[in-house]
Design a protein around this nucleic acid. Structure first.
Lengths: 231, 231
DNA sequence: AAACAAACCGGACCGAGGTCCGTTTAAAGT
DNA sequence: ACTTTAAACGGACCTCGGTCCGGTTTGTTT
């Protein structure tokens, strides 16, 4: 049953955490593993599972657009307020649906086999990272697109922060003389889900071309500079 | 009076143009200048001006968040339907507010003095383009942020397509061996308004650092390759 | 001047996200 | 078992973007 899979889907219990501290960049990545949901009351846990199961069914039946907060609540036989209490907002709910896949991806980066995981040269890891991300996004495109918050919030969402931190770390190893922080934003932006959708679905561009462009981009960006005429 | 300025603000008269043809990339840039608004009925033109003036006042008084479609309609003594008929949707209205500034910017790129305008080497023009765009976005940040459509639509909006086309053209001149189409998306993404907001407003990053990073990025990306080990 | 068609107008209406608050209930303490 | 309390619940309610359609205005034609 696809039900069990969602039991492990995790999210900070606080729907809208202000999260005041910028914090040392690379530390707060792993969102406490080991059966999360710090302490959920029995009924809360039950309803949470019901909601995720209902949401997944709605996605399968009517696409991501069919995942209305009211529809999910009704399908799970639960009040609307409960959905918002648990997931904060629509983005939170959709993100929770993607949580399992995201966890797997993070695990592959952190401890999987090279070149995605540790052990390979940073530039190779960068190349592998982008291609893996592109392929994964291409599979879950509709859901990931719907789960993307609007405007500035795009950059504060947990998965993106983790991925960007990862890229920044690899960049610091590969090109110490660059502004890794900002360069990582640039690289991440070129893997944006909305862009992927625009190019592949609206312009019919093959995924292979995107992968080639990513590979080339990494190459260009990490080439050591031989002249210092800039700045 | 700031009123007159808005008379020249322009937008395709069709609220929701399907725009089926991908078209030869660089052609449909200039959105017919020379006193646009092909043919607006007297009352329509009057209401359009009223609406823009009212919207501008609301922005000044309550910020972009205060620009509610109903509020604008009320402030302009006009029905709500009229607002949507004229501007299509909220994004269209906000875009129209920015139209004057956008036109000026486009003119500077197309016919202004170098290095922004034609006459300078493409790499210099690229550098100037990014810095100019960053500075302009930094000024109108709130409005531009509010005018940014969500999701995939971000990439289909007219100003962005023009700017990306411009970058693509410069890239083709500077680095003919690269995938200019995709590389231009990458460069444009690193100038994204939401990202600018995130970095400068939420993380307190100085604009100068963004400009330096842009300059460096252009340098890295346009450096000629000497080895062909990639691919 | 009268008639006509196309464009425009306005506001009632709808759906969806998000909030609020009185009520219920799980679980810890006695 | 009984009390207590903090958490969870649910659905009425609000706001806002967007649609619809009957009535009105404009400008053109005869």
């Amino acid at each position: 049953m696809l039900y069990a899979g969602f039991m492990s889907a995790a999210l900070p219990s606080f729907p809208t955490p202000p999260e005041p501290a910028p914090s040392p960049e690379l530390i707060q990545l792993g969102t406490g593993d080991a059966e999360d949901e710090p302490c959920l009351r029995a009924d809360a846990a039950r309803n949470r599972a019901r909601l995720l199961e209902a949401a997944a069914r709605l996605v399968a039946e009517h696409g991501a657009a069919g995942v209305t907060m009211e529809a999910v609540a009704a399908a799970a036989h639960v009040g609307k307020g409960t959905v918002f209490r648990r997931f904060g907002d629509r983005v939170g709910l959709l993100t929770a649906l993607l949580d399992h896949s995201e966890k797997k991806f993070q695990a592959a980066l952190l401890g999987g086999p090279p070149p995605l995981g540790p052990g390979a040269p940073p530039v190779d890891r960068l190349r592998a990272f982008g291609c893996a991300l592109l392929r994964r996004a291409d599979e879950e495109l509709e859901l990931q697109l719907a789960a993307e918050p609007a405007g500035e919030r795009r950059y504060t969402v947990a998965p993106r922060r983790f991925q960007r931190g990862h890229v920044a770390m690899l960049l610091r190893q590969a090109v110490p003389d660059a502004d890794g922080e900002l360069l990582s934003h640039t690289l991440m932006s070129s893997l944006d889900v909305a862009l992927l959708h625009h190019l592949t679905r609206q312009n019919g561009m093959p995924l292979a071309r995107l992968e080639a462009a990513w590979t080339d981009l990494v190459t260009r960006v990490t080439r050591p500079r031989e002249d210092h005429l800039s700045r």
